[in-house]
Design a protein around this nucleic acid. Sequence first.
RNA 1: UGUCCGAUAGUAUAAGGGUAGUACAACGGUUUUUGGUACCGUUUGUCUUGGUUCGAAUCCAGGUCGGACAACCA
Length: 551
Amino acid sequence: MSEEKSLNFIEEIVENDLNSGKYETLVTRFPPEPNGYLHIGHAKAICLNFGLTQKYGGYTNLRFDDTNPVTEKTEYVNSQQEDIRWLGFNWKNELYASDYFDELYGFAVKLIEKGLAYVDESSADEIAALKGTPTEPGQDSPYRNRSIEENLAIFTKMKNGEFPDGAYILRAKIDMASPNMLMRDPIIYRIKHAGHHRTGNKWCIYPMYDFAHGQSDSIEHITHSICTLEYVSHRELYDWFIEKLEIFPSKQYEFARLNLTSTVMSKRKLLQLVNENLVNGWDDPRMPTISGLRRRGFTPKSIREFCERIGIAKRENLIELSLLEFCIREDLNKTANRVMAVLDPIKLVITNYEKGTEDLIGENNPEAENGGGTRVIPFSNELWIEREDFMEVPAKKWFRLAPGAMVRLKFAYIVKCEDFVKDENGNVTEIRCTYIPESKSGSDTSGINVKGTIHWVSAQHAKTAEIRLYDRLFTSETPDAEEGDFKDYLNPESLTVLPQAYIEPALADANLESRYQFIRKGYFCLDKDSTADNLVFNRTVTLKDTFKKPN
RNA sequence: UGUCCGAUAGUAUAAGGGUAGUACAACGGUUUUUGGUACCGUUUGUCUUGGUUCGAAUCCAGGUCGGACAACCA
């Protein structure tokens, strides 16, 4: 179908199945368990499943895999839906494994009637003891040969709530000596007297993952059930149930999950960060969750592009965070308006500027397709500039301000540093410059060329804002692989708050959808914590910086 | 001492018996009123040993290394 771009192995399978006429319509599903927030790893699976049906036709279902009532919540259902929509995908049907509880119960009865399932009253420990190990076969349970009638009778009582949790379980009767541990009479139903987020108290027995997932796929006529590599050994069981139940033969395919440097991706660990207040909630901008990335300022497009670039394969991988950063910079470079903000201010006074104030014109975004337009920027003789743009003793190849040096003020004039003021502690408190009147941006007749251009904000016109700078969450690229607790490798400098930065007046009407490039400082967006008097900006990502800082 | 999955530049991903390519990263250069962008260039690779073949990253066999599997989790 597409000749230019090579296909990943799943696309090849799909194309073959479609071309051979094995299936007329491609049907995939995204099946999260509603027990946490979706993260960038889920985004990979979402882009794969929805991307496949966008490319080849057919449709994708959203199915919540809600077979364990004690971990699942409606809050998570809602957040997961929001995140998928935000990424730009639409599901055909919103479904729940719990929709199939009646049908699944029927499947279990059918298996019992075929002599392929039995009720076991062994304890969890007893079952584990007879399970064997990966290198030794297991042994049959003493209850394995109960009659079909007795199995049926007890299973009915299990369903009717006549037993406490753990008293009985239903097992598939397969092979206790199988080299695949999952085939050693896996548990398929357990008793749990727990309220379910959708079915309430209707049920007190719940199917296990292996007895719900494949059957749910089959009920929905999913043609390609795509999951991650850790389910490879489940495939044999997946196929076994479908064969014995004689239902629609969905097929499972596995790809390697995403791993990203300097973060963790397991739900357990993310939940820990949230519960122990090591981050500020699931949508903390340092989190690899979709909601965290959204709040950080990532765009859906950048995440889709990232998922496209990392590819789909079967080998374990560890993607460098720099690729994600590349994807968001690439998008924002084209779309974000350029504005000026001074994060760490120092005063600059222009001693020969007599005009008081003046309105200058700034280009919003020279990289935008439509040119970006312009805006008014007020200028005056007292400005804030970035402290790091002045060096009392300039380093080699220093393009910025230093005694006697000239720089251009972006969109404005060229200035020359004549003097500077220090306080009693030796800290520079003010820089004094003269400006070149004929060097005005756009009508420069001075003939002077300077190497450096710096950003600034007029002191009397500036607004203030709180700025939050983010860095990687962990100091280790592989916090999962380090010895000890992964939390020992949290980066203490992952969040830096600048309570009072100066921003140009045009920024006062920023909204939560706006994306900005603060010239020379990075890409920023408004945070939801903002109020009318206290604007808060998040730094999404810095600009690429090839300047090697002196000292 | 098992079964299954995998192995191509630093990181990913192509090449499906016939020139090892692409992206990110790194490094260098040109342009630039952002040390940004854009453009150009450089460095770095087929786990290993055999076999089949005129020819192997690709097919076969052995080895090595990495991962998964013993939750009434998904």
